[in-house]
Design a protein around this nucleic acid. Structure first.
Lengths: 206, 206
DNA sequence: TATAAAATCTAGCAACGCTATATATGATGT
DNA sequence: ACATCATATATAGCGTTGCTAGATTTTATA
């Protein structure tokens, strides 16, 4: 009988191998999607890329959709980090400006990644317990932006997110002319920059 | 030889038959999608529903995607009409309020239709000549809203559309809690309702 | 009524997601 | 060092998909 230590090392190595292969699969999926679109990300193609047979992929992710979901979660993690960075290291102008630019830059530079993050309904209602932590982290960066700034900062945050998402999507699907993007961002920032606190309440619909 | 009139009547009847079948296919696709999701809208299933063989569908639309595109165009037509109606018959509050409510009502009541309208990139850049007239019509209803109201009304319109689209999408994909929707709309309307003309320019970022 | 043309169907291909089953590889106990 | 067992991996195939070539039927024309 081998020592317990040796058995542990073996188990650890196997775990590392598993994780390495898992990340290989995710990377391959991202790469193919970004270059050739998600329809070309097939299980057979992925199993070719990592030189394993198809059932190995199913052992890891259960289904093709499971692979896409893993990619999406990775995307939310990266988006959250990018927003956090933008919020803390304000380059020029307001933090709203900085975060908006970072969000749209993320969406524009990895369109396929952004697509899968939102095309999949991989999340039950947003405040649900089963919502991936990465997703909540990303949104929390937007929440921080308006914390205590207005009477209903949560609603403002949701609205800000919706506006950014709308711009990103309409740009990605070529509904917006590629020009004028800077003007759109400028106008957006103006809308969401409140010169004084609590002032917005006085702007009435009448 | 039959008279030229008879030949014409025959041609007209054939055209009518074609159009009737075309609209049958589109209706079936919409119905299935709305109840069972787009993944269940297969060419075989549709050919079953209309009691024709598959090649007939390909004669009409060329491909499965062609069918979805036709549904999407029909959706844009209906959305445009709904927005026009909301803009002209203002029920309560501002026209902005009325149009926003109509837009979100449309998206919420036909989620599968709304999904296919934007998931497909069936349109080249928005101002392109090949952009379906129905798409332009729908957007023109939003343009009218802010016409001459601000110095850059086109940008404001795009931003308004983006916000509505973002809300619709994040709601449809369950990212937003179903509650608070009214508050979101109220806040949105406040943002896009400018008490005086040309004032928005003075709100500076600093 | 015969012929040409138009409309429609049958049958099948390649590729897909997925899995039951077989085989090979590696760890374990004597 | 070898036999045994478990684990990891591969092969091969099922059912379904989008799509189409070629056969067949139906319809219009002379």
């Amino acid at each position: 009988m081998v020592t317990k230590q040796a058995a542990n090392r073996i188990a650890e190595r196997k775990l590392r191998d598993r994780q390495a292969r898992r990340s290989q699969i995710i990377s391959a999926a991202r790469r193919i999607a970004e270059v050739e679109g998600w329809s070309n990300v097939t299980v057979r193609r992925l199993s070719d890329e990592i030189s394993y047979s198809q059932p190995v992929l199913y052992a890891h992710f259960g289904s093709r959709e499971g692979i896409l979901a893993a990619v999406a979660v990775e995307g939310f993690q990266e988006l959250g980090l990018a927003l956090e960075k933008a919020r803390k290291r304000v380059k020029r102008g307001s933090t709203v400006q900085s975060v908006a630019a970072a969000y749209l830059e993320f969406a524009a530079s990895s369109p396929a990644l952004y697509e899968v993050m939102f095309s999949l309904s991989l999340s039950v209602p947003f405040d649900d317990a089963a919502t991936p932590r990465e997703l909540r982290f990303a949104f929390s960066q937007l929440l921080e932006l308006f914390q205590g700034q207005s009477s209903k900062s949560e609603v403002i945050s949701e609205l800000f997110w919706a506006s950014l998402h709308g711009i990103a999507e309409l740009t990605r699907t070529k509904r917006f002319p590629h020009t004028r993007q800077k003007e759109r961002v400028r106008a957006l920032v103006e809308l969401f920059t409140f010169p004084r606190d609590e002032t917005t309440q006085e702007v009435e619909v009448r």
